[in-house]
Design a binder for these strands. Structure first.
Lengths: 237, 237
DNA sequence: CGGCTTTTTGAAAACCCTCAATCCATGTGG
DNA sequence: CCACATGGATTGAGGGTTTTCAAAAAGCCG
């Protein structure tokens, strides 16, 4: 269970298949292209661990295709999903000495890996890069605050609505409110601080009243964005 | 309600009284003494706002004495307390352009204020300082992750236990499990994602079975630390 | 097609919240 | 200095939302 991160290098890509949620890789953000020279590309299979909880944090990572979750596992089986990472997202950089969370692929994915030492050496010389990294940490902090609000204040329907709108916003704009969930109901539940049953029931209720459409469990269509937004409207500060 | 932060400067200290929870100010952490040259000391009264939500974030702050809370207020009255700050704690630096949270004094307090521009200018030249600020942001992120775990996974007794142990650990070591709560039950409730009634009931239950002592509502004594720790033992990863 | 996992659905229970009344501490004014 | 008013804290009863336990349905994979 608590084994070391097992990482498939590029040449282990036997039977690798293109990810469901594939998106064209966004161009590296300003300053980030520096990193591409020191990157290793990892091919990870569905459900495969990229790094495990409490392992030394000596790499930064970036999703190139597919998707990734970061999770914390507790002694009694309770689980918390910290984030879902989509193509372009950096992760693993928020750790101090060791990773607080494990990172696992939601589906067959390509992940770029950057040696931490090398990144920090580059950051010493590039103001742009160091500022970018700092901005990323701050952005992550802001995201964490949003999650705290969700977990601390919101009801189940509000959490689900927030989640659906977020996923919709992160999908390619061309999708028009249609997207596919790469994660299981358990992942969603552990992300939102609910049980799988509550997630399922709430989604069903939204489907019943026509707010969303659900096909094959994972194909979501937002039919009434207004309704979802009004569900969480009371929360806007 | 949403007025600008009103700040009492030193000379407005009429009727200022030494804070209940006063602690000797810890010596500035390495690199931080640089900041003291550009500091302004604010005298803030109990319940006074230091800065308000959505105000431009052009200062960093540090608690010198007393205590401070950071809060987010929602449209329908729901409230979230993000953190309780004690002497030595820096705050306000996690903001991007504007503050996500308001900062308010829990009691009459002294707060050091550093102009953001000046701090960043200093950070440009002092590797020590810039690394310190980055480390602080990372520490804050780690704290946020702990809160997410609390809000997402824990029951009410677990949240209260965690809170009490945290407050005890942050009190001066000489206190021996005795400390005073500067914040109201509402603050605690909004911090833990509970209601004041649940906070009150849970504290009473702990008092009844001898785990803690409560005097005059705010004076807490941890009588059975082991019991509190075992309440949250199942959560250790 | 058949076995498996995941998801959905149902019924009952638990937990926490809401509403309401009382208690207590604090501060004020006589 | 005491009586009283005020606001926060506690306590109680009842209800609602979410969880738990259990079973059926649906999707997935060989």
């Amino acid at each position: 269970m608590a084994g070391r991160a097992q990482i498939a290098e590029r040449h282990q890509a036997a039977r690798w298949r293109p990810p469901l949620l594939s998106r064209s890789l966004p161009p590296p953000a300003g300053g980030l292209d520096l990193l591409e020279h020191i990157a290793t590309v990892l091919v990870v299979r569905r459900e495969q661990e990229i790094y495990c909880q409490d392992s030394p944090a000596d790499h930064y990572y970036r999703v190139m295709s597919g998707s990734v979750r970061t999770v914390k596992l507790l002694a009694d089986g309770r689980r918390q999903v910290s984030a879902f990472l989509l193509p372009g997202d950096l992760f693993g950089f928020e750790a101090l000495a060791t990773h607080d969370f494990a990172a696992e692929a939601l589906q067959d994915s390509l992940v770029a890996r950057y040696p931490r030492r090398a990144v920090e050496a580059l950051a010493q010389r590039s103001v742009q890069l160091s500022q970018l990294l700092c901005a990323l940490a701050t952005a992550r902090l802001r995201q964490a605050h949003d999650r705290m609000l969700l977990l601390g204040c919101m009801t189940a329907p509000e959490r689900i609505s927030t989640f659906l709108l977020q996923m919709s916003d992160r999908a390619p704009p061309s999708a028009e409110g249609r997207f596919e969930l790469a994660m299981s109901r358990r992942d969603i539940a552990d992300f939102l601080g609910l049980t799988i049953e509550t997630v399922s029931r709430t989604l069903t209720a939204l489907r019943r009243d026509g707010t969303i459409g659900i096909a094959r469990r994972i194909r979501i269509e937002i039919r009434d964005r207004q309704a979802l937004q009004s569900l969480i409207g009371a929360l806007r500060p």
